[in-house]
Design a protein around this nucleic acid. Structure first.
Lengths: 169, 169
DNA sequence: AGCATATGTCAGTGTTGTTGACATTCCAAG
DNA sequence: CTTGGAATGTCAACAACACTGACATATGCT
């Protein structure tokens, strides 16, 4: 982009983008960008008694209403004890509703209450606003590349979870 | 990518990449990818008495040898107490050297020892390996887009710090 | 001399993660 | 029907990493 290297899709080109220096810049870009990525929701959350973990839980419950605790556990990649602490406060505060499964009564299906949806909206509005600006500034081709690289960076399992959510399965 | 939308660089196109659904997918991609991004170094660090904070410190000291504590503080965006805890253990363990400044004797300039460079190498090798695979799988155009979007996502200050490091100033 | 800067340190606190142990509930196989 | 295992919840202890607030020391600048 910024340099004069033509971007033909042929393999066997100079591969300058794979030098250690380029890779290190990619690493630092991830580091700094992730800080920006979480900054806005963090600011909102710090005013309440909630943290980033609550945001994640609320996000994925909103994304897949009725999901089970175990499913959420796999997506978030934390221990059940850690998730349970978060879910308990969210349920106590009336943001999340936990319904016993009809088929398998051991399972709990999680839903956002109206209040929960309000918080999710507030948080994701802030995060989407930043993402929208970044996407707009970079343009559609850059966005496609952004997503390709991120997808390739995920662990196998996470890529599956991501694809499942993306395709609404 | 997956859809049939052509990626002309003209503005005034459909802007499908800015829909809330697309933005949400971008958000989730960041979340899952960051997990992969930190997974390999985390595994190495968990065997030692170190954590992600030590990795960050070692990374940026390696990147800008002789940097001051204050400068590192700004890059990492933590409190001096938090950074100090990390630096103290690294210095005690002989991975980092702290030299009193020659011009301004209040400042401490930080350097990696040979042992420190060895750890940095080990950690960044792992992280670069993943980044290299992701870059290779996605291709040079995607990598350019990846970096453009990340850069646009950073906070002002962080973008400055990133650029400064990138350009070796 | 006095104020600001750079750094270090002590004490307390909060969020988020971990492990380990144990109870409850329920499905399913024998 | 009993038993084993799966899904969930809960308690306790602990560690990493961040925070605030207060204070100390050395140095630099005016």
């Amino acid at each position: 982009m910024a340099d004069g290297r033509s971007s033909s899709a042929h393999s066997g080109e100079n591969l300058l983008f794979l030098t250690d220096e380029q890779l290190r810049q990619g690493i630092e870009a991830m580091f700094f960008a992730y800080r920006g990525f979480t900054a806005d929701p963090d600011r909102i959350l710090s005013d309440m008694a909630y943290g980033r973990a609550h945001h994640r839980a609320v996000h994925f419950i909103n994304r897949a209403p009725g999901t089970t605790v175990n499913n959420l556990l796999n997506i978030l990649g934390v221990t059940k004890q850690s998730l349970n602490r978060v879910l308990r406060t969210l349920i106590e505060d009336g943001l999340v509703e936990s319904k016993v499964g009809t088929e398998d009564k051991r399972e709990r299906h999680l839903f956002l209450t109206e209040e929960g949806r309000a918080l999710e909206q507030k948080l994701s509005d802030a995060q989407r606003a930043r993402m929208r600006m970044a996407f707009r500034d970079a343009g559609p081709e850059a966005v496609a590349g952004f997503r390709m690289v991120l997808e390739a960076m995920m662990d196998r399992e996470m890529r599956k979870a991501y694809t499942r959510l993306k395709d609404g399965i």
